[in-house]
Design a protein around this nucleic acid. Structure first.
Length: 582
RNA sequence: GGUCACGUAGUUCAGUUUGGUUAGAAUGCCGGCCUGUCACGCCGGAGGUCGCGAGUUCGAGUCUCGUCGUGACCGCCA
């Protein structure tokens, strides 16, 4: 080894010891008579001292060391005269006797410190420099610890980690596939998996009754801060289980992570809310339940008083902002503007201030008297001092807008505390949703999701009413994972494909092998998959999963460091029998 | 596929509203001074195709159009 210790481990107990350290020059402070250097490695920072009195030649040499030079130093550990309480190694320093430059460095394009001066673009281009920063380093360490804890828990629960192929087959339904041309099979393409769904079900059929995999998945769709074209799932499947069994095992896994990683267990068992209930109480299927502020319907209370905004609306709903009756005109205008943005799409915002004196003041005073406004307040659970915010319009759009408004208000009122975690299971999703563009039903989860037993008889008569035996894990408004009990008979699976509008020929060519597999003894099974990147981001306290991925892509799917994707040569194309079209 | 914002020194930004002399700041970088710093301090210096292209104008960093890049969002993401 080129070193005897790391830059994070030396303490007072090591004083007097002769040590050799290696690392990067974080910073030099040249005082004239003496020079201090902060030496950094993965483990921390240790201060080096050079002194003109002792070794003038060495001290002069040290001034030539630039930022990010890689050096090896030999010296003695000694107690500092001025200690630095902000540094774990701040009680000691190294009196350098000799050093050697192991690698010189250009001047880095941005400063490699906690508060970097670099913007997103340049940091992605020089990702290997950005990764030297403590924030990203700690995120990657967190990711590692979580991966280890997950493997540890699932291993002890008897799960086997089994790899599945990446070069597979393009199938309809779901996200757009990334495809890979096959040189040996002219004009044919593999697809990269959107998830190992079919493989894990085949593993259940093969008798591996508890499977998991930390696995890359690929979806060729447009990106967001919480979406990358390739991302990592914790993919799990179990046989001979019902919904409760699955939820129990993975509640256990979530709590194991909370305990091992954050030392903070939110609840032994997580609340469960049906999809319908989530939609009516929160306006979304991924509610943030760290705070109340639930949506209350006011439709019957507001109709018929001549206010067109209500009279013409299918639905009117309110949320109650506790203690916000004193909000200024400016604050209310800002929040009104917020809901009127095209992304939220509300026509306007009606507010009612329920004053401390017990009277009401609203933006629709002209149409409603104090008593009726008080009635709304009571209905929505508001007390004197609270602010009622009301949106009206079509039921679906208004609920969606209220859900967005609810989050925004919570943000402004400081109710979304980073260190509080509120997990919740959302259950009983609709099995299908209607696709307006294609004029057909499509699977809300995926085509292998089992209907609830009691809704099975509706499958062909009234597919829109069928509920799925499916569940999502939502933490703090972030969809962390989702899964379902799967269809395990050929008959139901075929009915499912029929409702989705597949012809028998299409089913045969796309899923023939799968239907065939059902015929050789298929156990009842179900599972779940978690977005590992999102989970790490949640624990790291960041919204962007790029912060927890070593080498992420930008929002156009480009790798700014590699400058990929890129063109390939004519000879590569020829080998693949591919001609580019305009 | 669409909407919006941004693009000025190595970097992060101001300047654009109202076109007008030599485009500024901070930080970084280079040189000098400094023996207890840790956001070291002080003095001095260098550093610019205002993304690119066209247009309007006596005159464009500033206005218009196009284009490229970056970010956020809608659609999309079973």
């Amino acid at each position: 080894m080129l070193r005897t210790h790391t830059c994070g481990e030396l303490r007072m107990t090591h004083t007097g010891l002769d040590v050799t350290l290696t690392g990067w020059v974080q910073h030099t402070r040249d005082m004239g008579g003496m020079t201090f250097i902060d030496l950094r490695d993965r483990y921390g920072i240790t201060q080096l001292v050079f002194n003109m009195d002792n070794l003038p030649e060495l001290c002069r040499e040290s001034r030539k060391l630039g930022r990010e030079y890689v050096i090896q130093v030999n010296g003695k550990v000694r107690e500092r005269i001025n200690k630095n309480p902000n540094l774990p190694t701040g009680d000691i320093e190294i009196e350098v006797m000799a050093f050697k430059v192991l690698g010189v460095s250009e001047i880095p394009p941005f400063t490699i410190e906690n508060n970097t001066d670099g913007g997103d673009e340049i940091r992605l281009k020089f990702r290997y420099l950005d990764l030297r920063r403590t924030v990203l380093k700690e995120n990657l360490i967190l990711r590692h610890r979580m991966a280890m804890a997950i493997r540890d828990y699932l291993n002890r629960e008897g799960f086997l980690e089994i790899e599945t192929p990446f070069l597979i087959k393009s199938t309809p339904e779901g996200a757009r596939d990334f495809v890979v041309p096959s040189r040996m099979n002219k004009h044919q393409f593999y697809a990269l998996p959107q998830s190992p769904q079919i493989f894990k079900q085949l593993l259940m059929m093969a008798g591996y009754d508890k499977y998991f995999q930390l696995v890359k998945c690929f979806r060729d769709e447009d990106l967001r801060a919480d979406r990358q074209p390739e991302f990592t799932q914790i993919d799990c499947e179990m046989s001979f289980v019902d919904k409760d069994d699955v939820l129990h095992v993975f509640e256990g896994m979530a709590n194991y992570l909370f305990k091992e990683i954050l030392n903070n267990v939110p609840a032994n068992s997580f609340p469960r809310i049906s999809y319908d209930e989530a939609m009516s109480r929160y306006g979304t299927d991924k509610p943030d339940i760290r705070f109340g502020m639930e949506i209350k319907e006011l439709t019957p209370l507001v109709k018929g008083k001549g206010f067109r905004g209500f009279d013409e609306a299918e639905f009117a709903g309110a949320i109650c902002a506790v203690g916000a009756a004193g909000w200024s005109r400016k604050q209310l205008d800002a929040i009104t503007e917020f809901v009127r943005r095209p992304q939220v799409g509300a026509k306007g915002l009606i507010y009612v201030k329920y004053t401390e004196e017990g009277t009401t003041k609203s933006s629709v005073n002209k149409f409603f008297d104090d008593d009726s406004q008080k009635l709304w307040c009571e209905h929505a659970g508001a007390n004197p001092g609270d602010l009622l915010l009301i949106l009206a319009g079509s039921r679906k759009q208004t609920l969606t807008a209220l859900s967005v408004l609810r989050l925004e208000m919570a943000e402004r009122l400081g109710l979304r505390e980073k260190k509080v975690f509120a997990p919740v299971w959302i259950t009983d999703f609709p099995l299908f949703e209607w696709n307006e563009d294609e004029n057909r039903f499509q699977a809300m989860h995926h085509p292998f999701t089992a209907p609830l037993d009691e809704d099975l008889h509706l499958l062909e008569k009234d597919p829109g009413k069928v509920r799925a035996n499916a569940y999502d894990l939502v933490i703090n408004g972030v969809e962390i994972g989702g899964g379902s009990i799967r269809i395990h008979t050929r008959e139901v699976q075929q009915k499912m494909f029929r409702v989705l509008g597949f012809s028998d020929e299409e089913v045969q060519s796309q899923f023939g092998f799968f239907l065939e597999a059902f015929q050789y003894g298929t156990p009842p099974h179900g599972g779940i998959a978690f977005g590992f990147d999102r989970w790490v981001a949640l624990f790291a306290g960041t919204e962007s999963i790029r912060e927890v991925i070593a080498f992420p892509k930008n929002n156009a799917g480009r790798d700014l460091m590699l400058d990929s994707p890129s063109y390939i040569t004519e000879s590569q194309l020829k080998e693949l029998n591919i001609r580019l079209r305009e």
